[in-house]
């Protein structure tokens, strides 16, 4: 079943369909949030926030093809203000059962630490960019969205996406942004 079909059910109030969309896109949203925040636990919470916000606005969201552009739009917003977003959804996040210490095998912990270290190094590099250029570069590199979709997500013209991307790539020397090329 396509995103559009599932979304039609979600708009009619079907939470099961929303669960399927969560399973389908949670990893992509998580990766984006982790790369933006550099903290595993924060990124996990923000995935929940993104989907809660999406559910809240389901009546006004129109999905054409994939739900991902909308999810990235919300993820951009909540990562811009992630402390405020987490506070707003504090009650809901508090209902997520905590992860037991037994589950934290050493390999998993190392995996998370490595991922956080890698993303924080990237964040430090990208923070040299102006915010507008940075968001275009990140969206190009970390999502499968086209430049036209990125323009819609960020609310800017396609030409601006292209110019900001070119400028950002010149600044971040050697950055690999193959998706946007």
């Amino acid at each position: 079943m396509t995103d559009e079909e599932l979304w039609g059910q979600v708009r009619a109030g079907a939470s099961e369909a929303f669960g399927q969309l969560f399973e389908r896109h949670a990893q992509a949203v998580f990766a984006y949030c982790l790369r933006r925040t550099g903290t595993w636990a924060v990124a996990e919470d923000l995935v929940s926030v993104v989907f809660l916000e999406t559910w809240r606005k389901r009546a006004s969201v129109v999905v054409e093809g994939s739900l991902l552009p909308w999810l990235y739009t919300v993820a951009l917003g909540v990562t811009r203000n992630h402390q405020r977003a987490r506070t707003r959804y504090k009650a809901a996040l508090g209902k997520v059962p905590p992860q037991h210490a037994d589950d934290d095998h050493a390999d998993d912990v190392a995996r998370r630490v490595d991922a956080e270290a890698r993303t924080r190094a990237v964040i430090a590099e990208l923070e040299k960019l102006p915010a507008g250029d940075r968001e275009v570069l990140e969206m190009s590199a970390w999502s499968d969205l086209s430049q036209a979709q990125i323009a819609r997500v960020l609310g800017i013209p396609v030409g601006t996406v292209k110019s900001r991307l070119a400028r950002a790539q010149r600044t971040v020397r050697g950055a690999l942004v193959k998706e946007a090329l």
């Binding site: 996990e44 589950d103 998370r112 890698r118 993303t119 990208l126 990140e138 590199a141 950055a175």
Partner: peptide
């Protein structure tokens, strides 16, 4: 530098 670091998959559970 590679600005797209690998992100491990979320634990399925």
């Amino acid at each position: 530098m590679n600005i797209t670091p690998d992100i491990p998959h979320l634990d399925p559970i």
